[in-house]
């Protein structure tokens, strides 16, 4: 049992002939992920590092039975790549690319919501089910199978936390980097729901950062639906107060968005919030 991804999930790579796409297709396969091919319009029928290349997502899915796709194309092509994957009937879509315009992401998120597709990202490191498979760029060397599930808004910070857990001998059941953009696919709440229902997960780590109100909403969700212990970390406590998004942003968001507000909301529902990353393993014991 695993969340979103296991060793049998068949994955294609959109943008497999690019610098990042090719490199990470190989790393994913090395870890055991069933990377069954890639998409690069105009290069269908060719191969790269033993991966068959297809002109379209539809052709790739028909030929390989893939149900998941990971997008490595440049930001300005993400919208089209995502719409193509969604129309082809993909079940899990992971967008690693950063710098996607907000309106493009909104259009993509609207489509995945209508079709019930799990979207992770954009601007995210992807996910890994330790011991089984990974989609995206989380370094495989730092994970270890176990029972702690991690969900995080930040890429590199996720690695840091995974690494400290592994060093403390605490393996992971699933690590999901949901990405730091304001508009995104699945958020804390959806991940927390998956983790709560996942028999392989016994404890949960949630890594948030300043901005938005996803952590506050997650706190509310935890108080009602999550019985497994949750430890949190919030980045940006010392960050300078950012310029607010004009008056509308300030009025809509109210007190939310600050590290202080997020920490208070989480502590109120009995989530322990670590000050240092190194405290997370201790709090999980």
């Amino acid at each position: 049992m695993a969340v979103l991804l296991d060793k049998d999930t068949k994955v294609i790579v959109q943008g497999i002939t690019g610098y990042q796409g090719q490199f990470h297709a190989n790393l994913m396969r090395d870890y055991g992920t069933k990377v069954v091919g890639g998409v690069r319009p105009g290069k269908g029928g060719q191969e790269i590092d033993g991966f068959p290349i297809f002109d379209s997502v539809k052709e790739a899915m028909d030929a390989t039975g893939a149900t998941a796709s990971v997008v490595f194309v440049p930001a300005r092509f993400v919208r089209l790549a995502a719409i193509e994957a969604i129309s082809a009937g993909i079940k899990l879509l992971v967008i690693i690319t950063e710098g996607v315009p907000v309106t493009d992401t909104m259009e993509i998120v609207k489509l995945v919501n209508e079709k019930g597709i799990d979207l992770i990202g954009p601007n995210c490191p992807g996910l890994i089910t330790p011991g089984q498979a990974k989609i995206g760029i989380i370094p495989a060397s730092i994970v270890m199978p176990g029972n702690v599930a991690i969900v995080s808004k930040s890429g590199t910070l996720t690695y840091e936390v995974i690494d400290q857990l592994t060093r403390a001998g605490m393996g992971q059941s699933s690590c999901v980097g949901i990405g730091g953009d304001p508009v995104k696919g699945i958020n804390f709440i959806e991940c927390l729901r998956y983790f709560q229902d996942d028999p392989a997960t016994e404890k949960i780590v949630m890594i948030g950062e300043i901005g938005g109100d996803a952590e506050e909403k997650a706190a509310e969700f935890i108080s009602q639906h999550v019985t497994k212990p949750v430890v949190a970390f919030i980045a940006g406590k010392t960050a300078k107060e950012g310029k607010t998004m004009g008056h509308a942003g300030a009025i809509v968001m109210g007190n939310t968005g600050t590290a202080k507000g997020k920490i208070e909301a989480l502590e109120k529902v009995n989530v322990r919030v670590a000050e240092k990353i190194s405290e997370i393993p201790k709090f999980l014991k």
Partner: peptide
């Protein structure tokens, strides 16, 4: 940026 913020903290 996330690791940067955590580093600053």
């Amino acid at each position: 940026a996330g690791l940067g913020m955590a580093t600053a903290d």
